[in-house]
C-alpha cells in the first residue's frame, strides 16, 4: 500500500523544477537593483509587498487546484476576488461590520463557499475544471457589474492604510507571512498528499482507497481560504470597490502559476514556485517601469509577460528532459482537458 503512493510521489518530486522561477527571480532582482534601487528602501519594499501580495496569494490559491488536476486551471479567481472586494467595501460597511476579524472571516468564508461549490460541481458531475470555472467567471463577472456598475466606496480605514504603508513591519508583511505559514502547515498533511496523488494519477489514487470527491472538494476549500486572503489584500491595495479591475488577476495568476513551474497536467506544483512566479510577474512590471516607455509601458509589460511565459515553459521542458527520462507522452495527452 505505501509503495504505490511512495513510488508515484517520488516520481513527481523528481520532475518538479524550481530552477526557472528562481533564476528569473535572481536576474530580475539584479536588474531591479541596478535600474531602480528605490525598491530596496523601506518605502520601496512596502510598496512592493502590497503591490505584489494580491497576486502572490491569488497564485497560491490556484496551486492546490492545479495540483488536483488534470488541467486544473481556475479561471474564476479574478471575478471572485472582485466579488469579495465589493462585499467588503459595500456589504460589510452597510451593516457596520468593518473590524479586521469580520472582514477576514467574511472574505475567507465567501472564498471557501464559492470554491467549495465549484469543487462539488467538478467532482460530482465530473466536468472539467476549465468549463466550470469559465462558467463561474462569466456569472460572477457579469453579476459584479450588475451589483456595482461603477467603482466607488471606500474600504475600512485600517484596510486602506495597507496601500499607503511606508514600512514593511505592518500587517502588509504579517498577513502574507501568516498565509505562508498556513500553506506550509496544510501542504504537510496527509490530506494534501492525497490531493497530489489524485492529481498525478486519479486511477492510482482511486485504487489506493482515496475518496476522490472529498479530496477534490478539499483542494478547492484550501484554494478558497487563500482567495479570501488575496481579496482582503487586493481591497487594501485599491482602497475602494471596483467591478472590473480584478478580472485581469485571472490570466496573471495563471501566468504566474505556470512560470512557477506548475504542470497543468496535475500533481506537480509547489507553493514556493507559485510565490516566486507571482513575484517574478510583479518584478517584470517594476523593472519595465524604470525605463522611459511613457504611454507604451503597459504594452511592454504585456509583451514581456507573454514572452517570459513562453520562454519559461520552453525552458522548463528542456530542463525536465535533461534531468529525467521523458514521461509517457500518450498518457499525459489523453488526460488533457478532462
Amino acid at each position: 500500500m505505501p509503495s504505490t503512493e511512495a513510488v508515484a510521489l517520488r516520481g513527481i518530486n523528481r520532475q518538479r523544477s524550481l530552477a526557472t522561477p528562481a533564476i528569473l527571480f535572481v536576474v530580475l532582482l539584479v536588474i531591479a537593483a541596478i535600474r531602480g534601487p528605490h525598491l530596496f528602501t523601506s518605502d520601496g519594499l512596502a510598496g512592493a509587498l502590497i503591490g505584489a501580495s494580491p497576486l502572490v496569494l491569488a497564485t497560491l490559491a490556484l496551486t492546490p487546484i492545479a495540483i488536483a488536476g488534470p488541467a486544473g486551471v481556475d479561471l474564476s479567481i479574478g471575478p471572485i476576488m472582485t466579488l469579495i472586494n465589493i462585499t467588503i467595501v459595500l456589504g460589510l460597511t452597510k451593516i457596520d461590520l468593518t473590524g479586521p476579524v469580520a472582514v477576514f472571516a467574511c472574505a475567507i468564508g465567501l472564498g471557501v463557499l464559492l470554491q467549495a461549490a465549484m469543487g462539488t460541481l467538478i467532482a460530482t458531475l465530473r466536468i472539467s475544471t476549465v468549463v466550470v470555472t469559465l462558467a463561474v467567471y462569466l456569472v460572477v463577472d457579469g453579476s459584479n457589474t450588475v451589483i456595482l456598475p461603477h467603482s466607488g466606496g471606500t474600504a475600512p480605514a485600517w484596510l486602506s492604510n495597507f496601500g499607503s504603508a511606508s514600512t514593511i513591519f505592518s500587517p502588509i508583511l504579517y498577513v502574507p507571512l501568516a498565509a505562508f505559514v498556513l500553506w506550509w502547515l496544510v501542504s504537510r498533511t496527509t490530506f494534501f498528499r492525497n490531493i497530489r496523488l489524485m492529481g498525478a494519477n486519479d486511477r492510482t489514487a482511486f485504487v489506493s482507497g482515496i475518496s476522490l470527491i472529498p479530496t477534490r472538494i478539499g483542494a478547492h476549500v484550501i484554494a478558497g481560504v487563500f482567495v479570501g486572503i488575496a481579496s482582503v489584500m487586493y481591497t487594501g491595495l485599491i482602497g475602494s470597490a471596483d467591478p472590473t479591475a480584478g478580472a485581469p488577476y485571472t490570466l496573471n495568476a495563471v501566468t504566474a502559476l505556470v512560470i512557477g513551474g506548475a504542470s497543468l497536467g496535475g500533481g506537480r506544483a509547489k507553493g514556493i514556485g507559485s510565490v516566486l512566479g507571482a513575484i517574478d510577474i510583479w518584478l517584470i512590471s517594476y523593472v519595465l517601469s524604470t525605463f522611459n516607455f511613457g504611454l507604451n509601458a503597459s504594452y511592454w509589460t504585456q509583451f514581456a509577460t507573454g514572452a517570459v511565459l513562453v520562454a519559461a515553459l520552453v525552458a522548463g521542458a528542456i530542463l525536465a528532459s535533461l534531468s529525467t527520462t521523458r514521461p509517457d507522452d500518450g498518457k499525459w495527452l489523453a488526460r488533457w482537458g478532462k
Partner: peptide, 30 residues
Amino acid sequence: FVSHRLRGQSLVVTLGVGNAVLGIVQILVS
C-alpha cells in the same frame, strides 16, 4: 509547435503567445 512539444499545454502557451503578440504589435503601432 510549442504546444505540441509541451505535450498539449496549449492553454498557457497560447496565453503567452497572445500577450506577447498583442504587446509587440501595440509597441510597433505606437
